[in-house]
Write a protein that binds this DNA or RNA. Structure first.
Length: 482
DNA sequence: TGGGGTTAT
DNA sequence: ATAACCC
């Protein structure tokens, strides 16, 4: 099928119809079951669908640091390097190095269990994330040097869109060099590379760039990690974990069905979380194939069209979500959990501590928070994950003080946060909190002009001329606030 | 379970 | 403001 002619949309409609057709004759069990030969047709359909128009096929890398917090701690204190090391937050070992893993320590194991399994385990406290956060952004910045299109996922994972870089490298190559290209790292399934297949060649160049990225991370930052190269984010992420520590894997399109079917449960599919997997299980869906073959109509009724269509595409290994550059953070927050906080004074003290750290961070960032939020967790025996929050604007005079620096901004902020607190907690009644969190969000450069707007080009400090210019004006000087 | 983050509704 | 997702 030529995508240019009938239009790609019709192919998709055909695929959907093929599925519904197959569903109509579904052989018992639950609605939507397909015969094995029909399944192959379906997989074939989806295989052909995604790369449609090979010029639009992407090369994505997922970079995943090995036991990140533990690595940072081992760099801070090299004596820890050859010992089993765990990073502790409260009563849990949140991550550990490979020495410790060999001895049976697992992520998010309680300190008690971990010590029982491994009495020699060395523990360091990792409740203050400052050094991890700093190292995390160094990694992202290093990757941004290869290509600015880097999307962060947590502190230790990044996606990079390599499509353009790969194209440029291929343009530079002579034909004799082209035939001599080799893959860097593993090929998923040990699938043979076809040097005449343009998709293979592009992914292979992607694997070379991935190797260069990992080498740069090690040489410049001393960090090791894994990488996965594939045609979309989902597959790149899944394949990055295939060979584990400090190795990389490329996925060729012919093996994508094998990769997704290597998952033992839909919950392992990135994008399908706790809630959705429970709802799917209630529908009798537990494997990737169950989800592939389930009636789209019924799934849409149950989960809503948006979630249904997205996760069913995921089940086929399809993911058209772009690598979205993360840029600077959208929010800053600090939280603390504890066994019990039951007085207003106690809460105020904790809030002051969180706020003090946050103000330092916000100050260093340079942008100003226009919204504050207080979140808390009340003790309750049964339910899990019951947090509530209240938020409000940061008063303009406080934003001004933040901008000017040096003025006391603690006092007015604590007052605001305590109002939010009393809005959630009736302080005249007994209460029992187990977590407090303060968040600054809605961050703006003091300068409110946005890229692409008239204001942007009329603002000397932002327009291109002033980057090179000797004078830099501030908005205030221009009386533009009005 | 901790101490973070994101986007969608 | 909450609910889902990610690490």
């Amino acid at each position: 099928v030529e995508p240019e002619e009938a239009g790609g949309g019709d192919e998709e409609a055909d695929a959907t119809r093929a599925m519904e057709r197959a569903e109509a004759g579904a052989p018992g069990g639950w609605p939507g079951a397909l015969e094995p030969d029909e399944l192959d047709d379906l997989a074939w359909f989806h295989d052909e669908l995604e790369p449609a128009g090979s010029s639009s096929c992407r090369v994505i890398v997922h970079v995943d640091l090995d036991c990140f917090y533990a690595q940072v701690e081992m760099i801070s204190n090299p004596e820890l390097k050859d010992k089993p090391l765990g990073v502790q937050q409260k009563y849990f070992v949140v991550t550990c190095n490979y020495e410790a893993r060999k001895l049976g320590v697992k992520k998010l194991m309680s300190v008690r269990d971990a010590k029982e399994k491994c009495p020699q385990l060395v523990l360091v406290n990792g409740e203050d994330l400052t050094r991890y956060r700093e190292m995390s952004y160094k990694v992202t910045e290093l990757l941004e040097e290869f290509n600015p299109v880097v999307e962060r996922l947590g502190f230790d994972e990044n996606f990079v869109d390599l499509t353009e870089m790969v194209e440029k490298r291929l343009e530079q190559l002579q034909s004799d060099e082209l035939s001599a290209l080799t893959v860097s790292g593993h090929v998923y399934n040990n699938q043979p590379v076809n040097p005449r297949d343009t998709l293979h060649v592009r992914l292979l160049v992607g694997s070379q760039i991935a190797a260069e990225m990992r080498e740069a991370m090690y040489q410049q930052l001393g960090l090791t990690g894994c990488a996965g190269v594939a045609s979309n984010k989902l597959l790149a992420k899944l394949v990055s974990g295939v060979f584990k520590p400090n190795q990389q894997t490329v996925l060729l399109p012919e093996s994508s069905q094998d990769l997704i079917h290597s998952l033992n449960h839909i919950k392992e599919m990135p994008g399908i979380g706790y809630k959705t997997s429970k709802r799917l299980e209630a529908l009798g869906i537990s494997s990737v194939r169950d989800l592939q073959t389930f009636s789209s109509k019924i799934l849409e009724k149950e989960l809503g069209i948006s979630v249904a269509q997205r996760i069913q595409k995921l089940s086929f290994g399809e993911d058209d979500s772009p690598v979205t550059p993360s840029g600077p953070p959208q929010s800053f927050s600090e939280e603390d959990s504890f066994k019990k906080c039951s007085s207003e004074v106690e809460a105020k003290t904790k809030i002051e501590e969180l706020l003090a750290s946050l103000l330092n961070r916000v100050c260093q960032d340079g942008r100003k928070p226009y919204t504050v939020r207080l979140t808390l967790r009340q003790y309750s025996s049964g339910k899990q994950c019951n947090r509530e929050s209240r938020q409000c604007p940061v008063p303009p005079h406080v934003i001004q003080k933040l901008a000017a620096g040096n003025y006391d901004v603690m006092t007015p902020m604590v007052d605001i946060l305590m109002k939010l607190f009393r809005n959630m907690v009736n302080v005249k009644m007994p209460f029992h909190l187990t977590l407090l969190s303060v968040c600054f969000c809605n961050l703006k450069s003091l300068n409110t002009a946005k890229k692409g707007t008239i204001d942007y080009y009329l603002t000397p400090s932002l327009s291109t001329t002033s980057h090179a210019g000797k004078r830099s004006f501030k908005m205030k000087d221009c009386h533009m606030e009005d």
